[in-house]
Simulated scan of single mutants.
Amino acid sequence: MKITQSISSPTELYREKLLNLLHHLAIRLASGLLVLWAIATLTFFAMQQMPGDPALAILSGTNPTAEAIAEVNHEYGLDKPLAVQYGIYLSHLLQGDLGISYSQRLPVVEVISQQAGATFQLILAALVVTWVLVFLWTLSTAGRRRWISGLGATVETVAAAMPAFWLAILLLAIFAFGWRLFPVAGSEGIRSLILPAFSLAVPLAGFIGQVTRQSLEITLEQPFILSARLRGLSDWSVRWRHALRHSLLPGISLSGWAIGALVSGSVVIEVIFSRKGVGRQLFQAAQSQDMPLVVGITLVIAVTYVIANILVDLVYHLVDPRLKGDDQ
């Protein structure tokens, strides 16, 4: 009696991996849309509870009459029942219409598009600085002599505990007001980006470095690391080529959260450094009770956070060798 065993071809294995990845992506997209709907709903009803009359905010700077207030309420649909307003709000969101800014009299999409570039530059620069600091410091100190490793862990703990706004003020006092190496405020040129980027990156690097250090120290004790050392590889080569990939997985899983933290942290940093950006616009919109702009920026931040988490999850799925093994 012959026993036949079917062996999947490389093409079938690749197709199976691709289908698993697409299925995983579909689930994450569905959950992301649900999160966005929840955030949009909570933001809408939270803004309804804010004190003050939206019509007066729209007509700020004037002495409006009752007729003018009634006209504005009718124009913006503020005189309709709350359920109807919510339905109109969701229908506009589905069409990509975030409304008109009360304070700037411009479409919210246009206001955000004008400011998004500066915020994106800041977040990207901070993320790059974060990982450079994590790579250099963690690879240099983890798994070394006890006092070196302890010093590395202490520095990471102190960095993670630093409030970004406090660090920003300290960097301004030393490098801008004191030594005059960088501009105090503004958004022009690379030099104006360095201090804000480090203000956001240092606390985040401390937090991610703590997680990466623990994973790297565990990885350095694994048998495949000993095998690499026995083959004559240098210590730095073993760390960079073999241990780093495995120890980065926890840090990669936190990168989605890190991007969200950078986006939210950019609000304070852009205000402190008087930079252009979505965060500063959010601060000003909240001060002027500009509800459409507050809601629009909040939703854009939420979309950025959801997309970042989906992409990071896919990268984790591709990088983690255990997940690849499960697919096979």
Rank of each mutant, 00 (worst) to 15 (best):
L94N: 10
I310K: 00
I100E: 14
S192L: 00
M50R: 07
I174N: 02
L200V: 08
L226W: 13
A161S: 14
L181E: 04
K2C: 14
P51A: 09
L314H: 09
E156I: 05
I301L: 03
H23F: 13
S103G: 05
I225C: 03
V319N: 11
L33Y: 04
A55C: 10
L33M: 12
S266M: 00
S255R: 02
R15E: 05
L93H: 00
G117P: 02
R144E: 02
L98H: 01
I148A: 15
H242E: 11
A55G: 13
L233T: 09
P183D: 02
L22Y: 09
E16C: 03
I169M: 03
R146P: 07
F45I: 12
V111K: 04
G150H: 01
L34C: 15
I310Q: 03
I190V: 14
V184K: 14
W37T: 15
S253F: 04
I208Y: 00
A164G: 10
E71Q: 15
L90W: 07
R245E: 04
R213D: 02
T119S: 10
L204G: 08
L94P: 08
T219D: 12
A168I: 00
L106T: 15
R280H: 04
Y86I: 11
L314Y: 12
A46F: 09
L244F: 15
A126Q: 03
G150L: 10
R275I: 10
H23K: 15
V271Y: 09
Q85K: 03
Y89F: 08
G87T: 08
K324Y: 00
F177K: 02
